[in-house]
């Protein structure tokens, strides 16, 4: 520490090479210690047990050691309740995330446009995010008659709740992206004769790419959390249109059917991990 005090910033200063190396080592060590808690925690609670789960899904676990091949997966893929749950979850994701991004972008553009009411809207927009689901579901149940919630209309209700809850934060992210676009770009485009729709298409949308990416990630993560609303609306056995993956898992946790749970976990993780890894590798190649 004495040394660094005397010599100023440790990695920019011209110190003797040997000394510099040891200081670099010290920085690596400090960084390693800082990242250790999250890394260990992630390994212990998520990554390593996931390896156990893969074993379970092939029949290797819980005392049994007979390799079952893909038979557990085969049975799972023939189970009507799993297919229903997976289908509903995918449908929810495919409808919910694009709608959420579109709504968030539209609201951000409106807020950025400086219309009257901007202040009020900006102040209240994050409220749905923090309101507890239990309280909101109470309001929904009083407003919407029970027979509707027990029919296939439960799906749009669930979708609307998801959009209502998450739109605020997505709007904030798009607003942040909009504020980072230099206004000279628009002035230059206007001078060249580009009208508003063209400016939106050629300047705003491409430069909002980071906001889109981050919003999509949050949208996907949160769409899986819609089980909370579904559970509070419909209990453990809701209408089949909102029977989600989590309902299926809960039933199997009650029966202690670990092999089946493990196979369902792996099957759900597979597309997510593959897509994420591909995107990360693609990004790496580009930079």
């Amino acid at each position: 520490m004495q040394q660094s005090k005397k010599n100023g910033p440790i990695w920019t200063n011209k110190i003797r090479p040997a000394k510099r190396l040891s200081l670099l080592k010290r920085r690596v060590l400090t960084g390693g210690l800082l990242i250790l808690p999250i890394l260990l925690g992630t390994l212990i609670f998520f990554v390593l047990p996931f390896a156990m789960v893969i074993g379970y899904s092939f029949g290797l676990g819980g005392g049994r050691t007979r390799f079952a091949g893909f038979s557990i997966y085969e049975k799972l893929l023939q189970s009507g309740s799993f297919l229903l749950a997976a289908g509903n979850t995918i449908k929810f994701l495919a409808l919910g995330v694009p709608l959420l991004l579109a709504m968030g972008l539209a609201l951000a553009l409106l807020l950025h446009g400086g219309f009257p009411g901007t202040r009020l809207c900006g102040r209240t927009i994050l409220l749905p995010l923090v309101l507890p689901i239990a309280s909101i579901v109470m309001v929904v149940e009083w407003l919407i008659p029970a027979p509707v919630l027990e029919s296939s209309s439960a799906f749009p209700v669930l979708l609307a709740l998801y959009l209502w809850k998450n739109c605020g934060y997505i709007t904030v992210l798009f607003l942040a992206g909009l504020s980072l676009i230099p206004s000279e770009l628009y002035a230059a485009a206007a001078m060249e004769g580009a009208d508003r729709p063209r400016q939106l298409w050629y300047i705003t949308l491409p430069l909002l790419a980071p906001s889109f990416a981050f919003s999509a990630v949050l949208g996907v993560i949160n769409s899986f959390k819609s089980y909370r609303e579904a559970f509070l609306l419909g209990g453990k056995y809701p209408h089949e249109s909102i029977y989600l993956l989590q309902h299926f898992l809960n039933n199997n946790f009650e029966n202690l059917n670990y092999a089946r749970l493990a196979a369902a976990s792996v099957l759900t993780a597979l597309p997510i991990v593959l897509v994420t890894v591909c995107i990360l590798l693609f990004q790496r190649r580009r930079t």
Partner: peptide, 17 residues
């Protein structure tokens, strides 16, 4: 990757550990 895994994936591993 772990961030993107929903609870529906991580619950079983977490339960086992």
């Amino acid at each position: 990757v772990v961030l993107l895994l929903p609870l529906q994936v991580t619950l079983t591993p977490s339960y086992l550990i």
